[in-house]
């Protein structure tokens, strides 16, 4: 009893290396090889980051150049394949038509994604509460998922109060399922010992949900968010193709169809460019949200150190 509890401190298993920049055990063997210093490590990291941005830009620039060359050399008429210059031109001149359309599509996509997040997450929580609720409801969600949205769209268009509402419902239905199924998986994958621990400490159902199940399923939810974000945009476009609505409230999909009918191919390309940009933006945004919420603790957001 010469030592108190406080003195029997952890020292045997404290991390021996906190710096991490120099691999410790290789010194003797590879004395000829220059070990990376902190400065050179930072420099190589910077170079890597620059390359990560530069390489894709170069590839895209090359492809655009090839496109222009092909159009010029073969003398392709602009109503079949316009050059990139013409596309940029119509992007600027048709801005007053394309921008409202972009805004409409963005609104529908984001609104349906938000609804799918709330609906999918909430439904998942409901499903895992009892096996009977799951047995009763899960098949319906599967049927809804496996039926192609383009096939249900006409029905939804008939019953929905407005075209906008119909588009919203279509995009919601498509984005809903990946979020639901991922979330269900997450809620069911909670460490059993942690569940035992919560039971031991007399945690209520509510506490177990808030402090254990929800945070534990966050990585799964984020996967659902990334998939759902992409699908919501696709569904919003597909549904608008089916609806074929015209007028002031129409989105990018309608502008695509309209350009096709009028053989205004450069505007079609411009609309396509905006659509792709929106998709990339949604992907970047959902990826960032996922990284931001998980980077402090989850393996998927950590760089491997070895």
């Amino acid at each position: 009893m010469t030592t108190t509890a406080n003195e029997t401190l952890a020292s045997a298993d404290l991390p021996q290396e906190t710096d991490g920049s120099t691999p410790p055990s290789r010194k003797r063997r590879s004395s000829a090889v220059k070990l990376p210093t902190k400065e050179s490590a930072a420099a190589s990291k910077r170079r890597e980051r620059t390359l990560t941005v530069l390489v894709p830009i170069c590839v895209i620039a090359t492809l655009i150049a090839l496109w222009q060359i092909m159009v010029t050399v073969n003398d392709i008429p602009h109503y079949i394949l316009p050059g990139p210059g013409l596309v940029v031109q119509s992007l600027l001149s048709d801005w007053h038509v394309l921008l409202p359309a972009l805004w409409v599509t963005t609104k529908i996509t984001l609104a349906s994604l938000a609804l799918a997040l709330i609906g999918g997450g909430g439904m998942a929580i409901l499903l895992v509460q009892s096996r009977w609720i799951e047995t009763a409801l899960y098949p319906i969600t599967v049927i809804l998922q496996v039926t192609p949205i383009i096939a249900i769209a006409p029905l939804i268009l008939i019953y929905a109060p407005s075209t906008q509402a119909a588009l919203l419902i279509c995009a919601f239905v498509v984005a809903f399922f990946p979020i639901l199924s991922n979330m269900v998986q997450g809620l069911k994958s909670v460490d059993h010992n942690l569940l035992n621990l919560f039971e031991l400490y007399g945690a209520s159902r509510w506490q177990t949900l808030i402090y254990l199940k929800l945070p534990a399923s966050l990585p799964y939810f984020m996967t659902g968010l990334r998939i759902g974000g992409g699908l919501a945009l696709i569904a919003a476009v597909v549904a608008e193709f089916a609806a074929g609505s015209a007028g002031a409230g129409s989105g990018l999909a309608f502008r695509l169809l309209e350009s096709q009918f009028r053989l205004n191919i450069s505007r079609l390309f411009a609309a396509l460019f905006l659509l792709a940009s929106l998709g990339v933006l949604i992907f970047a945004l959902t990826s960032f949200i996922s990284w931001w919420t998980l980077h402090r603790w989850h393996e998927s957001s950590l760089k491997r150190e070895n």
């Binding site: 460490d191 010992n193 942690l194 621990l197 031991l200 007399g202 254990l212 945070p215 402090r296 989850h298």
Partner: peptide, 16 residues
């Protein structure tokens, strides 16, 4: 009700 603690074979910590 309380007063009993359990240490599992695994650390069983919440990673978040």
């Amino acid at each position: 009700d309380g007063d009993i603690s359990f240490v599992f074979q695994e650390p069983t910590l919440m990673p978040w």
